[in-house]
Amino acid sequence: MNNNNNKIIEVRNLVKRFGNFVANDNLSFDVYKGEIFGFLGANGAGKTTAIKILSGLSYPSSGKIMVAGYDVYKQRNKIKRSIGYMSQKFSLYEDLTVRENIHFYAGIYGLPFKQIQNRTNELIEELGIQEMANKMIADLPLGWRQKLAFSVAIFHKPKIVFLDEPTSGVDPITRRQFWDMIYRSAEKGITVFVTTHYMDEAEYCDRVSIMVDGKIEALDTPTKLKENFGVNLIEDVFIKLARK
């Protein structure tokens, strides 16, 4: 898997400064096609800053960054077509129905109308929410909103989906179901880049990077990380790094 041709995100010496504050201090890492890449760190470690740069919401101060084979400085429009994004806010319109939300988001990605119709029906069936399809989002339970938000983020079949703390504030059962959805989309070949501060979720990732104060302090598979630090849980790896 770790073959050079398979790199889908390539980051070299990424620096992001806000005045004197360095939010991302010289980050370098690669993400490979089809993997679930976990981006861990405490609140304020610089995860969201990095994900915003990778998804084209913000410019880096310096560094070379390629996403889906495109340069973040010059080819933003091409990057935008190749990625999906979901933030910790669920980002669906509460006053629109499930169907209307799907149609709207599919529409702004320019999918043809016929295709939108067919795939909307498929998705509603897949999620088993036929009876909720014409309800407003405001009337949907939180767990469903979040699963729907994820489905909408990958509706246009992006190469990469960026998830910024997608499970914060959700009950454990829904989190588990959510991760099942992430696995399914990774199986379909979508690369998943996910930030989280739930350490147990790190165990579900193919590879994990741990950020402390704007720097990447460790990057490997969860098993190897635990071996290297001689602990049983990713949480302990994290605590060791944070105390250093």
Partner: peptide, 13 residues
């Protein structure tokens, strides 16, 4: 406020 603006800005719009 509800976070949809980020999604719009990430989209090709």
């Amino acid at each position: 406020e509800i976070g949809t603006m980020e999604i719009l800005l990430v989209s090709p719009l």
